[in-house]
């Protein structure tokens, strides 16, 4: 049996099969490494979400747009400064130096959005909040993460699963929530 297998392996078809199998294993490994090595995107300041949420600051304090319109918004430096100017550590901490510099120079820094939908998707935060969803339903529990990461693969299947679940047996609601024109136009 072993001998026959060996004979088959050295035959042309066997070699091709070995090469294909090798490529398959290699691509699987490469994909796995790629998946596990994605670091959170670098931000101008390595903003610790867990610390701020731990202080009891609400999500909507820094991202107020979520309850009003399409975009939740990312805070500007003056919003940070509102609290941080009263904190002594702001002046000394090396981690907060970019903010101090930016404030003294009058410049701003640009946060890198982590939860982004493609440009052909028109996502609106307001109806989602109005429907009773909480931030952590989509963005994960920020009291546990230090640097914000997107916990979901935000693709259309993920959106639709939730839409279908929440519509339940309500035909009209399902029609509205699975309509292509609700998000794509």
């Amino acid at each position: 049996m072993v001998k026959r297998f060996f004979e088959w392996v050295i035959s042309p078809m066997g070699r091709i099969a070995v090469v294909i199998a090798g490529m398959f294993v290699f691509s699987l490994a490469a994909f796995g490494i790629y998946q596990s090595q994605q670091n959170p995107k670098p931000q101008p300041i390595q903003f610790p979400h867990n610390l701020h949420v731990g202080f009891g600051i609400q999500c909507l304090y820094c991202h107020p747009g979520a309850s009003k319109g399409p975009s939740a918004g990312l805070p500007t430096i003056s919003k940070c400064w509102g609290c941080h100017q009263q904190i002594a550590k702001t002046q000394t901490s090396p981690k907060l130096k970019p903010m101090l510099d930016a404030m003294t120079n009058g410049t701003n820094f640009v946060w890198v959005p982590v939860a982004k939908v493609p440009e052909f998707v028109h996502f609106n935060h307001r109806p989602h909040i109005a429907a009773g969803l909480n931030c952590e339903n989509c963005h994960g529990d920020m009291s546990k993460v230090e640097i914000a990461e997107n916990p979901q693969v935000m693709n259309m299947g993920w959106c639709l699963n939730c839409h279908r679940e929440r519509a339940g047996d309500d035909e009209a609601k399902l029609t509205k929530l699975t309509d292509c024109g609700t998000c794509h136009y």
């Binding site: 052909f120 509205k176 309509d179 794509h184």
Partner: peptide, 10 residues
């Protein structure tokens, strides 16, 4: 939902 034709660009 809207009873119109849609073109889904993507």
């Amino acid at each position: 939902a809207e009873q119109i034709n849609l073109q889904v660009y993507n």
